[in-house]
Design a protein around this nucleic acid. Sequence first.
DNA 1: CGAAAATTTGATCGAAGTCAATCATTGTGG
DNA 2: CCACAATGATTGACTTCGATCAAATTTTCG
Lengths: 190, 190
Amino acid sequence: MEKAQIIEIVSDIYSPLNEECKIQIYQKSKVLTFGKGEILVKAGAYCDKSYFLAKGGARTFYLKDGRDVTDWFAFENSFISSINSFFYEVPSENYIELLEDSTLLVLSKSDIEDLCNKFHDFEKLNKVVFAKTMLQLQERIVSMRFFTAKQKYIALLKSFPKIDQRVQLSHIASYIGITLETLSRLRSRI
Amino acid sequence: MEKAQIIEIVSDIYSPLNEECKIQIYQKSKVLTFGKGEILVKAGAYCDKSYFLAKGGARTFYLKDGRDVTDWFAFENSFISSINSFFYEVPSENYIELLEDSTLLVLSKSDIEDLCNKFHDFEKLNKVVFAKTMLQLQERIVSMRFFTAKQKYIALLKSFPKIDQRVQLSHIASYIGITLETLSRLRSRI
DNA sequence: CGAAAATTTGATCGAAGTCAATCATTGTGG
DNA sequence: CCACAATGATTGACTTCGATCAAATTTTCG
């Protein structure tokens, strides 16, 4: 996948970028490809990068008392990073794992800050991504709080259509905060 | 409370602002005072303002099937708004209610955008507030997912010391996603 | 002071968790 | 290319935490 093409997609989907801005993103960013199962960021490492998933899928997860707990999914045309580590420059609590063969556009935090300073368009893009993330988080809180296991699962399917065909059920279960067994049971009743 | 003093506090706590920026905030902002129980924003209204609570306390809540559900608390030195409405310029789903006699510094969305464009300092402040909010949301998700009712309550007390002496238990219960009865029972066992 | 609101206490119920066993699918090495 | 581990998913029995419904008690405030 072409770098220029990916930048175009970001501009189209999130917030329009002027030409000069696109050029500088082009110069600063890198396109990476990873295979399914590869780890992009390890817990304990510093994550000073933001990744745009042009193709494929990923999740962030952490180990809670030895249990693997997914706390975020991202698929094509969305961003993923280790939020804590990125903002506060502390070691990441999460792993980021690719769930499929994926193509990513990468920018470092310092480049992002640079671009924010130079381009109001980029600043705006940045803000749009923030706002989207916040609203996703909020929606998730509502879902966790008021929905039964079944409703949570249906809501997830609505947010990420066909995720059940792309991702292990155990990841889905831990993401929506139920056990694998409960998920399995409710799926058989749909 | 003096407007200049409040702006100073924001600058101190969140992210430093240069003099010229402070002056313009001074010119654009308003200081408001409200009494306990007053409604700042009603559900259905457009909330195009961001409020800094210099003194007092507030909550956002919504009505879910006739039930009053708190989804956010804010006390002195923090910001509150109706996130959805503010960003997407849609009618607010939430009410914002003052829980105590309060003093607020108010800026409109358009003034905030203006200030962001003019002052990199302000842009940065804005970003810091975003990031804090996101991390709070994330922490809350973790709390809701892994903690028992008791642990959730203890975690809340840690985030907001003495909140149990400032806020009705029913609000606390709905905030942490348990019933008032459960909260009452677990409190008697502490 | 008295009514309304807030909180506590009690009895019962149900959704989802845990532990455990089985079944299905995937993928790797001989 | 098959065999058989290893991993993933389903099913079952039992338990538990917190919800619901109901009533009593305490606090607040006009």
